[in-house]
Design a protein around this nucleic acid. Structure first.
Lengths: 352, 352
DNA sequence: ACCCCTTTTTGAATCGGTTCAATCATATGC
DNA sequence: GCATATGATTGAACCGATTCAAAAAGGGGT
């Protein structure tokens, strides 16, 4: 019945019209006489023609109408990591609205990532650079497609990217707690340098390779110094953003002679883990200890008590990123966006 | 510097070789003399050629090397719904391993979905049919690409699909609780028919339009009847799989003169919500009430106490689905997979 | 009947590659 | 020195559509 695969040309021939006319029937129906149009359509149906093949069409058009989101992580990262999920949900919202396809590309190992980026059918990329960002940027550059980096840990201003203002945001977070009356703080940091976990000092921060974490620390310091708290007096523990290391960090912070009354967590993920740990130890949040997070992932609002946090404007970030990539109008340089303080139940005046 | 866009033909000409040779340099380097190969490569670099364009290549190949996952939901569904996430994480695992791209396609409204499905650059589809499955299947059929439906609520055996054995699984769940000694049960059901929430009777189950929910109910009944518990004595409350309706259901179940000692939840999501509600009411799980879920989403294992559940073998489902779609070897009919009882902390012997 | 203007339709070029049979060049065996 | 095997390169066809200048058809006015 079906001989091979039916092409537009076959339909045209079978209907006795030129291929040009047949093409018009599908793409600009208003230009072809109704009679002819219906006849062609009918013929197409009779032959089992599924409509113009996309590949043929896009070869001509040069546009795929899809963007890729890439990360140096296994694909499952997109569905597991709260930050990635929140961002992707926002990105998909925008794509949905503009009828743009969304392709996920990723790989933990360099070689595969390379290949995946090279072979993704997209018009441009959004890069999730939490880790291994330069690698990603470099690989993407070779593809010669528009791209924009998010959460890039790099000073190089020449890479088109959108970042949140970590320093200012962290300062707001610390100020919020200080204004509530807190004076003893503990910081649970996200990664500062590769392969390190544990307490870090001022010098470690200053030479941290991940600028996101470093800027957040600097922001905390800046705000606290206004309240007369010197950076040397703020213990910082570097975690891996996972349960074991966060709990180790809490053990460390609370084994001090004068334990903190407030925890500055550099991610909501850490903050949430911290709240669970505190609970399990019989400490109540926020009565005994206040906790503030960073990122503003949805989970923070669905937990009891709600997590006070510095929320990234995911919707706006997504909007800008998708827009830039899609219209090949990526900013030449880094763009900065402010995070917003969202006060929920996890922060309060300290107990006297 | 850059004049228009560089094509393979340009490189070939500039390097003084035929286009065929140039093509070979990129695709079968071993076949061209090293000397020539390097010269071509060098010329390519000099010209700023980014490598063979994908569109041209795939036009020839006819394969995109990507699969689409589709649902009748907004795109954000893929990142929010626990079941969808668990499944997608598994699917991406498989895709990752085989170097296959993953595209997300979705839309709540029919027209857009139609267009999205028509225009997705993929070799086949995996359909998430929790709701509105027939629509999805029909639309996809028109595209004439291999596809396989997951969680399809339909008796039509002629649709290629993979389903879990809901009836048998539900029976195992109920038997587990009955063997622990429970005799008074309450069921929190997923959707049975559109636009209905509230208590349902035996007749409602029998004429339910969503076969997934119906089969789970039938499974519960079948197992409980072995223990001398008749179906009329098992209260069932239909929820929307969301917080308000689940809490309404619990209110209903626990307002009975003889409240249940065990909750049969038709989804982990419902089970998790139920546990929170019970906790808030001062009832402890599993000491006071046992709860068993269905699906086996990762969250169930990360909560305290762990959720006992009937786990879907996501990895296997993903493996089969991706394999079938990719090799255009979709089974002609429905395939059935067993769910597995995973006992964690949320079920125990009832209090005397 | 003729001319001019519109509306349709046609045919061929084009998009950017891959592929493969045929050709050419070089080395090997006898 | 000649036939043959081996390896590298070429050229043209092809993948499945879109596009557009030009031709054809149809309609109106005089």
């Amino acid at each position: 019945m079906v001989k091979g695969t039916i092409r537009l040309a076959d339909v045209a021939k079978a209907a006795g019209v030129s291929q040009g006319t047949a093409s018009n029937v599908f793409n600009r129906p208003e230009v072809v006489r109704e009679e002819v149009r219906e006849h062609v359509l009918e013929t197409a149906k009779r032959l089992g023609y599924a409509g113009p093949s996309l590949t043929g069409r896009l070869l001509r058009a040069g546009k795929v109408n899809a963007i890729g989101v890439a990360a140096v992580e296994p694909l499952a990262y997109f569905f597991d990591d709260p930050w990635a999920r929140a961002l992707l949900a926002a990105v998909s919202q925008v794509c949905d609205a503009s009828g743009t396809g969304l392709a996920l590309v990723s790989a933990k190992d360099r070689q595969k990532l390379d290949w995946n980026i090279k072979s993704a059918l997209v018009d441009g990329f959004i890069l999730l650079c939490v880790e291994g960002g330069e690698k990603l940027v470099q690989l993407t550059r070779e593809r010669q497609l528009p791209f924009i980096a998010l959460a890039l840990n790099d000073e190089d201003g020449s890479i088109p990217s959108i970042s949140v203002d970590n320093l200012a945001g962290a300062a707001v977070a610390a100020r919020h707690l200080a204004e509530l009356g807190h004076r003893r703080f503990g910081v649970l940091a996200t990664e500062l340098s590769d392969d390190h976990v544990g307490p870090v000092g001022v010098a470690d921060i200053e030479r941290a390779i991940y600028s996101t974490s470093r800027d957040r620390a600097l922001g905390y310091w800046r705000a606290l110094e206004v309240f007369g708290i010197s950076r040397e007096d703020v213990p910082i523990y570097e975690t891996l953003n996972d349960k074991p290391s966060v709990e180790a960090g809490l053990d460390y912070l609370f084994s001090a002679p004068e334990p903190p009354t407030a925890i500055l967590a550099m991610s909501d993920n850490i903050a949430l883990l911290a709240i669970n740990w505190l609970r399990a130890k019989g400490l109540s949040v926020p009565q005994d200890i206040s906790v503030i997070g960073f990122d503003g992932v949805p989970e923070g609002g669905m937990v009891e008590p709600g997590l006070t946090t510095m929320a990234q404007p995911f919707a706006e970030i997504a909007q800008r990123a998708v827009g830039a990539v899609l219209h090949d109008a990526v900013p030449a340089e880094r763009e900065m966006i402010d995070v917003i303080l969202v006060v929920r139940g996890s922060t309060a005046t300290p107990k006297r």
